[in-house]
Design a protein around this nucleic acid. Structure first.
Length: 433
RNA sequence: GGAAGAGUGGCCGAGUGGUUGAAGGCGCACGACUCGAAAUCGUGUUUGGGUAAAACCAACGGAGGUUCGAAUCCUCUCUCUUCCGCCA
C-alpha cells in the first residue's frame, strides 16, 4: 500500500504510473473518499471530546441529569457517524489497496512482458559436439523424474524426483547455505561486483511454515485474486507460493531496532502454485510444476539501505550462476512486468541448450516500503525515529529449474551429467551422475 | 480433540466501572556525584492520527455488546500455559 499523503500530493503521477503498470486505479474516487473520511473523522473527534469531558466530570462528582442526557445524545450521534465512517473506511481501503507501488526511476515503461530489456548477457550458449538433449529426455532415461506415476497419484504438473537428481538438489542447497551464511563469501561478492554501502552480514537460514493466513497473504500483496493459490479447505489458510510470503510477513506489527538491520533470511521451502492461466504451457519436463522447492532470500532494511540491498541480491544471483558456469542474461523488467507491489524487478534467464533458449530461473524484487506499510513492520532508527522498513526478496535458486539448467548445460553424449566443480564437495566427490 | 487458567508498555508486573495512556520494578537514554567506574540520586522513556507547534482523538490479543462513562462487566474469537487424549 502507498502512503495516502503521497497520493494526495502526487495524484497525477500516481495515475500515470498506475497506467504504465497496467493497473486500473480511480485516483479521483480515492481522494474523494479520503476527504469524506477526514471530514467524518473530524466530527467524530469533536463528539468524542465532549463525551470524554462529561466522563471526566463524572469522576469528581455524580453526573447530573443534564450530563447523562447529553451523554445519551452523544452516544447515538457517535454511533451513527462511526457507522458512516466505517463504511467510508472500507471503500477507502479497497481503493487504496488497488494503487500499485511507484516504479523506480530506471524501470523501462512497457505494456507487455516482451518489453523487458535485456541488460546484459553473460557467457555464451554452451556448445556441444553432439546434438544436446532436453532435460526431460535425459532425466526420464536416467529414471530421475517420474511424471507418469505422479499423474496417477496427484495429476498433471507433479513429479517424483529420484536418485542422483535428489542428491544433486541436496548438494545445491548445501552449497548455497554455505556461501550465504559465510561472512567472507558475502564480502567476496560485495567486492567482486563493486557494491558500495552494503552490509557484510550473513544470512540466517530459515525453515518457514508452508501455510499462511489470508490476512498476511493480503498484506504482502501476493494473494492477488487467489486464483494461482491453493486454499486449505475448512480453514483460513493458504499454501504459500514462495517463501517470500511467509518470511516477509514474519515480523508484521513489530518495531525492529536499526542495529539489527539488515535482517537477512535464507528460506528453504516447497512452494505451491496453481499455475492459473498457463494451461498447456511447459507441459514437458519439470519446468512448471504445481510444487517446487526453492531457496529464497528475504531482507529487511532501512529506507536508505533498500536499493543497495536490491543490487546486492542481484549480485548474489549472478555470483551463484557464474560459480556454476551457467550462461545467462539479466533482464530489467518493464513497468508492466515488475508486479504491483514492486518498485523494481530483475529477472535472470539461464541458457537451456536442450530447448535452445533462455528461460527464467531467478527474480529479484524490491518493494520499498509498500509491503511494510500494511504489514506494519517498522524500524526504530538510532535517533529514535520510527519508520517503515524496506523489503527485498530474490530467488537464490528455484531447485527444479536449476537442476534443469545443470542437466542441459552439463550433459554428455552418453546422457550422463557432469557435476559443476563447486558442487562436487557436496556430492562427496562424485563427478558425474 | 476434551477440561481449567491466562493474555496490560522493550521485559516483569499492579489495576474496587469514573484524577490509569496506564502504579511499581527491570532495562535503556541523558544528567549529577567520581580521576574514572560501580553504587546512589535526578530526569526522561508506547504507537498511530491531528497541528506551524499545541490542544485534541484512538489503541490494554482481536471483533461485537452493556453503560452518561469500560483495561475493568457480557458474548464470540484468536493465542499461550497446565492437565487428559492422540501422535512424528
Amino acid at each position: 500500500m502507498l502512503d495516502i499523503k503521497y497520493i494526495r500530493e502526487n495524484a497525477d503521477e500516481v495515475g500515470k504510473f498506475s497506467a504504465e503498470k497496467g493497473v486500473k486505479v480511480d485516483v479521483d474516487a480515492l481522494l474523494e473518499n479520503d476527504a469524506k473520511m477526514r471530514e467524518l473523522n473530524g466530527r467524530l473527534e469533536e463528539l468524542r471530546k465532549e463525551r470524554n469531558e462529561i466522563a471526566e466530570a463524572g469522576k469528581k462528582a455524580r453526573p447530573t441529569e443534564e450530563q447523562i442526557a447529553r451523554g445519551r445524545e452523544l452516544k447515538v450521534e457517535i454511533e451513527e457517524i462511526e457507522k458512516e465512517f466505517k463504511g467510508a473506511e472500507e471503500s477507502f481501503i479497497k481503493l487504496i489497496k488497488e494503487v500499485p507501488n511507484k516504479p523506480w526511476d530506471d524501470v523501462p515503461v512497457g505494456h507487455t512482458e516482451d518489453e523487458n530489456v535485456v541488460a546484459e548477457t553473460i557467457g555464451k550458449p554452451t556448445e556441444f559436439d553432439f546434438e544436446p538433449r532436453n532435460h526431460w529426455d535425459i532425466a526420464t532415461h536416467k529414471g530421475w523424474i517420474d511424471k507418469e506415476r505422479a499423474a496417477k497419484v496427484t495429476g498433471a504438473r507433479f513429479a517424483y524426483i529420484k536418485g542422483d537428481l535428489v542428491k544433486l538438489q541436496m548438494a545445491v542447497i548445501n552449497w548455497v547455505m554455505k556461501v550465504l551464511t559465510d561472512r567472507t563469501e558475502i564480502e567476496k561478492i560485495i567486492e567482486q561486483y563493486g557494491l558500495k554501502d552494503v552490509s557484510n552480514k550473513p544470512f540466517e537460514p530459515v525453515l518457514p511454515p508452508y501455510m499462511i493466513k489470508t490476512e498476511m497473504y493480503d498484506a504482502m500483496d501476493r494473494l492477488g485474486n487467489g486464483e494461482d493459490r491453493y486454499k486449505i479447505e475448512g480453514s483460513d489458510l493458504w499454501l504459500q507460493g514462495s517463501a517470500e510470503h511467509v518470511l516477509g510477513s514474519m515480523y508484521a506489527g513489530e518495531i525492529l531496532e536499526e542495529k539489527d538491520l539488515p535482517m537477512r533470511m535464507l528460506g528453504y521451502a516447497t512452494s505451491f502454485r496453481q499455475e492459473a492461466g498457463t494451461y498447456g504451457k511447459d507441459m514437458e519436463g519439470i519446468i512448471r510444476m504445481h510444487q517446487f522447492d526453492k531457496l529464497e532470500m528475504e531482507s529487511f532494511t532501512t529506507a536508505e539501505q533498500g536499493f543497495n540491498e536490491h543490487l546486492f541480491f542481484v549480485a548474489i544471483q549472478r555470483y551463484l550462476l557464474e560459480e556454476l558456469s551457467l550462461p545467462y542474461r539479466v533482464l530489467q523488467k518493464c513497468t508492466f512486468d515488475i508486479g504491483k507491489p514492486n518498485a523494481r524487478g530483475i529477472d535472470m534467464e539461464v541458457w537451456l541448450p536442450g530447448q535452445g533458449k533462455y528461460r527464467e530461473t531467478h527474480t529479484a524484487d524490491y518493494m520499498t516500503d509498500y509491503q511494510a506499510r500494511r504489514l506494519k513492520t517498522r524500524v526504530r532508527k538510532a535517533d529514535g525515529e520510527v519508520e517503515l522498513i524496506h523489503t527485498n526478496d530474490a530467488t537464490a535458486f528455484a531447485l527444479g529449474r536449476i537442476l534443469i539448467a545443470i542437466i542441459e548445460n552439463f550433459q554428455n553424449q552418453d546422457m550422463s551429467v557432469s557435476i559443476p566443480a563447486v558442487l562436487r564437495p557436496f556430492m562427496y566427490g562424485q563427478e558425474t551422475i
